[in-house]
Design a protein around this nucleic acid. Sequence first.
DNA 1: ACGTTTTCATAAAAATGTCATAAACTGCAG
DNA 2: CTGCAGTTTATGACATTTTTATGAAAACGT
Lengths: 228, 228
Amino acid sequence: MARKILVVEDEAPIREMLCFVLEQNGYQATTAQDYDSAINALTEPYPDLVLLDWMLPGGSGIQVAKKMKQHELTRHIPIIMITARGEEEDKVRGLEVGADDYVTKPFSPKELMARIKAVIRRVAPTSLDEVIEVQGLKLDPVSHRVMASDHALDMGPTEFRLLHFFMTHPERVYSREQLLDHVWGTNVYVEDRTVDVHIRRLRKAISIAGHDRLVQTVRGSGYRFSAK
Amino acid sequence: MARKILVVEDEAPIREMLCFVLEQNGYQATTAQDYDSAINALTEPYPDLVLLDWMLPGGSGIQVAKKMKQHELTRHIPIIMITARGEEEDKVRGLEVGADDYVTKPFSPKELMARIKAVIRRVAPTSLDEVIEVQGLKLDPVSHRVMASDHALDMGPTEFRLLHFFMTHPERVYSREQLLDHVWGTNVYVEDRTVDVHIRRLRKAISIAGHDRLVQTVRGSGYRFSAK
DNA sequence: ACGTTTTCATAAAAATGTCATAAACTGCAG
DNA sequence: CTGCAGTTTATGACATTTTTATGAAAACGT
């Protein structure tokens, strides 16, 4: 599956050039011209990365970055800022606000792609359809299957997504709400407690080889997937 | 059945030479001179391999490769790039974009054929008309027949194609839409649910020796052919 | 007209969300 | 340290919804 990249840039020619380059490189690009449309584009399906022009009319790019950092669901989307040459101060402030990297106008497509790849690799080291393995528990997104020591494990679609999410985001607590957002999708009107049930079902499904201990309860906070 | 190879090369003499060599070796060659005609040729019936000249007028060969990687149906077609001598950087970029191998101009027909065979063997270890066998279930594309422990199995043409596709693409989920694309062909206006019916008929046909368990339902995703 | 494919209606199966209740944990008072 | 009350999580059951399986009829191509 192609990664989605949001391009926030007011100058149409540059925007189109960026899209072209991105699409040539197998990414799926969406665009925004200003603050409002950028915020508007920051919804489901969330982009995997945002290319953000520093100088935007109406509200500068940094406002977009700040807004993103305020919301739980957009907080971790990596940002690459586009700055004009020599605006050293901007770069510093950009990185302060949480930009992951920046490119200086004008830039070569090659350089841009290199930085995008680097950032994505850093943020999401696991490819979208690669087999993930933790302590003998293997999840294969391609065959859509979970195996534990040559045993195929049976579980429902939701449990599969939940496990997938956990395995790609290990060693970190997630509240029930966060899990609902990430695994169920936003704007779902499902009760928090429902997560408990699916956690139990997931544990039961992977318990044959004792992997249920990987799904850990963090009392008062939520759940964590951990090999420790 | 002969493998189809698409030759994308702007210089007519080289193109003709390539076709000649390929056909001498039992392949079926189609040609394209530029980006547009290449994209145009990348449709049904899909080639089994693309020989791609790096330097193309209008849009370089790498653009063709990138475009191919963007589309589900052409993504897995192997690519051998043709590069000029010494363009080391090109080779690197070509492999980055997903080329499987490259040959350097000028090249000997012998070398070219060796690389083609190697790539095809690597990507499609099952020859087009070789008997495929999974757990005693034998499908012979030449005689167009399916056998299970010396028993000839009866099924309709669609079931046969479906089984053939499954056996050559095991251990992977396919949605109903993908199956329609691959087994029925693209641009078919057939309902998703029709797949269910043919899955059932296929299962019934191969169930005599218990092989129906190889055709597995992946709830919410589609079907999978798996020996596990 | 025949064999095959597609559609449709319905049955069956699986998954989902919710609830009630049990169990586990926490802090605090005794 | 112990027991209790208040919370939080685990678990089993269940009604509902969604998805798939299946039989039969209609449509299709030859």
